[in-house]
């Protein structure tokens, strides 16, 4: 397979397993490019990409921008706080105005789930979802899986696995408000891994088992079961009511600390999509430990996003 089955990257749920493999194999080549003296290739030099962020972001936005620039694309940035959205313009009008200036691809983050799907039905450009509310954050799901794959590759003398059969991944924390969780669940399951979610009962969505994941409310049980733990941030900005008594109590019952990690008697991979709240969901000694691949995740983010942009742009649409 040499091309993606989709025109837009809206959600991992829409992708085939072969799409995931293609993205990972392409990202391998981009990762090599990122280690060259000149970290830039001319592939997308005739493409213009708009990064439209209706919600705050540092990592994702910088990562996308770097990926675009390293592919030689022209980049325009837009954030809602400094734009006419504040004056009452609709999403579709805003995007159509940007597209009228001949933009080929749109990378969008929006606070409403489904915003990128809506957009993809009304406009012609390729759309990449950079996070839509509590729905999905597909490139994060991809880079998390890619980082696990890379880690497994190191354990197997450089040969990256083609699937994750037998691999167990726990996603810990605020599952209810997390778009990263859903993208991770879909991505890992498509690759053949087993997934478990763990958190306080109020932060685990009802019927999450119907996705085929295990559920536990005991952090130690989750850590003992898994080979890799993806620890998520408590998304206070999305919580309009209290889901747990206090951050201190959350840290006590669901925070991952060194003592807990040492007590499970095996080395597991520790991941976090960032931003980290040190001392809440993860302590500093765990986040900075040798088991943690948090910074590798950020590094891989650029390669994964380059692969996605390259593969979506590479479909022949110009005549």
């Amino acid at each position: 397979m040499s091309s993606l089955s989709v025109r837009h990257l809206i959600s991992i749920k829409d992708l085939q397993t072969e799409d995931l493999q293609l993205i990972f194999n392409t990202a391998d080549q981009f990762k090599e490019i990122l280690n060259r003296p000149i970290k830039k290739v001319p592939s997308l030099r005739d493409i213009t990409i708009a990064n439209i962020f209706f919600e705050n972001s540092t990592r994702t936005r910088i990562s996308f921008e770097l990926a675009e620039k390293r592919l030689s694309a022209d980049v325009v940035n837009f954030s809602s706080s400094s734009s006419s959205v504040k004056k009452g313009e609709t999403l579709l009008d805003t995007v159509n105005n940007i597209l009228a200036m001949k933009v080929d691809m749109v990378v969008m983050r929006h606070q409403s789930p489904g915003a990128p799907v809506f957009l993809s039905r009304h406009i012609d450009a390729n759309i990449i979802n950079a996070g839509d509310g509590t729905h999905e954050h597909p490139t994060q799901g991809l880079l998390d899986a890619y980082s696990i794959r890379e880690q497994l590759g190191k354990q197997r003398n450089g040969e990256a696995p083609t699937d994750f059969k037998g691999m167990k991944v726990a996603i810990i924390g605020d599952i209810l408000h997390s778009r990263v969780a859903l993208s991770n669940i879909h991505c890992l399951q498509k690759l053949g891994a087993e997934v478990l979610v763990c958190g306080p009962p109020t932060l685990i969505p009802h019927f999450v088992e119907t996705l085929g994941v295990r559920v536990t409310y005991n952090i130690k049980e989750a850590l003992m079961w898994c080979d890799a733990a993806n620890i998520l941030r408590i998304q206070l900005e999305r919580q309009d009511i209290k889901f747990f008594p206090s951050l201190r109590e959350y840290a006590l019952y669901f925070g991952v600390n060194k003592e807990l990690l040492d007590s499970i008697g095996k080395d597991i991979i520790i991941m976090h999509p960032g931003p980290i709240n040190r001392g809440v969901e993860i302590t500093s000694d765990v986040a900075d430990s040798g088991q943690s691949i948090i910074l590798q995740q950020v590094e891989n983010g650029v390669a994964i996003r380059m692969a996605v942009l390259y593969l979506l742009a590479g479909r022949k649409e110009v005549s």
């Binding site: 040499s2 091309s3 080549q29 090599e32 290739v41 001319p42 390259y310 742009a313 479909r315 022949k316």
Partner: peptide, 23 residues
């Protein structure tokens, strides 16, 4: 050396160009 990303027929061929390994 793989030169896929430097080719001049990107977006001009029916099949997307699949990169090989550079070492």
């Amino acid at each position: 050396l793989d030169a896929t990303f430097h080719r001049d027929d990107f977006r001009r061929t029916e099949k997307p160009l699949v990169p090989g390994k550079t070492v």
